[in-house]
Amino acid sequence: MTTVTFPPVLVIGARSDIGRAVAHRFAAAGHAVILAARRASELEQDRADISLRHGVEATLVEFDVLDTGGMADFVAQISPEPQIVVSVVGAMGDQAESESSPAAAALIMRTNYEGPALILGLFAERMAKAGTGTIVGVSSVAGDRGRASNYIYGSAKAGFTAFLSGLRNRLADKGVHVLTVKPGFVRTKMTEGMDLPKRLTAAPEEVADAIYAAVGKRHNAIYVRPIWALVMAVIRSIPEPIFKKTQL
């Protein structure tokens, strides 16, 4: 009899609804999971849940996406060594506040771009040396075109999307797969209270299913609901003189 071992998966930003769903999805398929978050010890119940439900090893690890100085040590010390790293880190912030407060804007930029890009970059380096591995970055449709209502967040996501694209390009022949995920609207804690159109809104579990499938098929970039590809194609194609007068 041969035993199949599934490579460990690191979920960065595991406290979020999408992070939790992603961890469950990979664990259900037999992967060991490592949950990384700030105040990771608070996620003990999630850890127990994943481990009990799916019969896999689940561990917690402390991680702060703003602590760029500690990232090299984090990558060097993490055990077991993850073969798949998924970053679902993100924060929407308050657009109006970000417009007038550089500190607030910087926090959004760092949380959505600087932090996730740097940590995934470090893991990618290690995977490139090993010649194998998968990097998954959860970006956003908001990064496809800057809009008045959320361009601070959107610009950071645009940077992250571009980073992932470049990383994929560089590592394409080094055995490392890079996946960009644009979920569209998702029913999460972050969007609770917003009035979201049903057809365009996914459940966190749907996002997790899409990520799991895309990793297996080695897709490069996905929208979780295919309709978003169409929506964003339209939004991107509107000429700037018209676009600047719209309220989207």
Binding site: D17, Q45, D46, A48, D49, L52, R53
Partner: peptide
């Protein structure tokens, strides 16, 4: 529904603790 974690299970007694 978001509080749906399975917290412990004792196979000796069949007692399940969950949210």
């Amino acid at each position: 529904r978001r509080m749906n974690r399975i917290l412990s299970f004792d196979p000796a007694t069949g007692v399940l603790v969950a949210e």
